[in-house]
């Protein structure tokens, strides 16, 4: 069965664990050797070697140029993702500084409670501890208290779509296992649903452009 998602995996301990069957997991250092044309979405996890990705940035740019989706989870520190700016950590002065707000209702976070993203067993900060400045036309989904975009969708920097989340991966790919008792457990399936819709949208847009 062909898989829709390719996961650029850092192969560190904290990223190990069970992944959804739709994900093809590859060692990040194998990226230059992989035929990417069959994948709809490239998932890049937060422990990846970003100096290596900077060397191979053209591969990612080409993937996006072919109307595909890239989802990045983590803190961007080098220049490998088109149109994106470096991570800015939140300066913590108050106990609410890590509070997450839903900036816009969206299928990915439908039915997910803000406080359940913000708080994990009474502790804040697991979800995101900073942000990436968003491109002007980005669709901002989640923010920190001063409006900093934690999670956004960028359809303007490339011909494809970039999903940026300044935190842990929101799919089910190893790492900490989300509690099934919390509304945050809805996110992985809803994110996958969005990827499918977004891929269809990108494909239809391509057809429309061809017709024009």
């Amino acid at each position: 069965m062909s898989k829709d998602y390719i996961v650029i995996h850092p192969c560190n301990i904290f990223s190990q664990g069970k992944a959804d069957e739709n994900f093809e997991i590859v060692d990040m250092y194998d990226l230059p050797n992989i035929e990417l044309s069959s994948y709809k979405c490239m998932v890049i996890l937060g422990f990846v070697d970003q100096e290596f990705l900077q060397e191979k940035k053209q591969i990612i740019a080409d993937f996006l140029a072919s109307k595909k989706i890239v989802c990045f989870f983590g803190n961007l520190v080098t220049d490998w993702l088109p149109g994106q700016q470096a991570f800015i950590a939140k300066d913590i002065r108050n106990h609410w500084d890590y509070d997450i707000s839903i900036a816009k209702q969206h299928v990915i976070f439908d039915g997910v409670k803000e406080e359940e993203m913000t708080i994990n067993k009474g502790v804040k900060g697991f979800f995101a501890r900073g942000h990436h400045p968003a491109p002007a036309d980005a669709e901002i989904l989640l923010t920190l208290p001063e409006g900093e975009p934690v999670t956004f969708i960028d359809r303007s920097s490339t011909n494809g779509t970039i999903f940026m989340h300044a935190g842990n991966n929101l799919f089910t790919i190893g790492g900490m296992i989300p509690s099934t008792l919390k509304t945050t457990s809805r996110i992985p399936a809803q994110l996958m649903q969005w990827v499918q819709e977004e891929y269809k949208y990108l494909a239809e847009e391509r057809i429309n452009r061809c017709v024009k």
């Binding site: 100096e51 803190n75 520190v77």
Partner: peptide, 9 residues
């Protein structure tokens, strides 16, 4: 050195 954001910082 792994080049990850964590090691980078």
């Amino acid at each position: 050195y792994s080049g990850s954001s964590q090691h980078w910082r």
